[in-house]
């Protein structure tokens, strides 16, 4: 990363890790004494940091005065939480019934091949995270997939590389 520890030198709007941790600490302070607020804190922390690595889990556990295993137990229970860094773009292939029968699985297989990752993983260059979605409500466009907020309809596996080239 081209950022210094305390202040970002590259001119971008990105915050440094330290700034992110400070923000998370504020959230912890706010929720610390509220019973049942761990999930809110984890949501906020994931929004700020992008994902929830072990070190951040330790930080939250210490701050919330909860055992680390409890924090990690909650994180692994909910599929929304991620312990792996997310890529710059998230690809979600729809695996709802309509998309599935129209070849959604073939899209996943091909993407796994092209990106050299399994579902749920992120490419080495942190560009893409490959995920599946359970019906994005575009059944008439099956098989469909989303890259970030953009929906691609009737995707042909052979066209995937062309689509990815746009990013």
């Amino acid at each position: 990363m081209n950022c210094e520890a305390t202040k970002c030198q590259c001119g971008c709007d990105q915050e440094t890790d330290q700034q992110k941790y400070e923000k998370i600490a504020e959230i912890i302070a706010k929720y610390k004494n509220q019973a049942g607020s761990l999930i809110q804190v984890l949501h906020a922390a994931q929004n700020i940091y992008g994902y929830l690595p072990l070190e951040l889990q330790r930080f939250i556990a210490a701050g919330m005065d909860k055992p680390l295993a409890e924090v990690s137990g909650v994180i692994t229970f909910y599929s929304f939480f991620s312990t792996q860094p997310k890529g710059k773009h998230t690809i979600r292939v729809c695996m709802g019934t309509a998309c599935y029968v129209r070849g959604g699985k073939k899209l996943v297989d091909r993407l796994e091949d092209i990106l050299k990752v399994q579902v749920g993983e992120t490419t080495e260059d942190r560009k893409y995270t490959l995920d599946i979605a359970r019906c994005i409500g575009a059944c008439g466009l099956a098989p469909a997939m989303m890259i970030d907020d953009v929906v691609y309809k009737q995707v042909n596996p052979d066209k995937l590389e062309t689509i990815l080239a746009k990013y």
């Binding site: 072990l54 889990q57 556990a61 909860k66 055992p67 680390l68 295993a69 409890e70 924090v71 990690s72 137990g73 692994t76 229970f77 909910y78 599929s79 312990t83």
Partner: peptide, 19 residues
């Protein structure tokens, strides 16, 4: 002490240490 907790969900549930 709290080093053990249930992790994951459904069929994948496992009693485990953090991460």
């Amino acid at each position: 002490v709290g080093v053990l907790s249930a992790h994951n969900r459904g069929f994948s549930t496992v009693i485990n240490t953090a991460m």
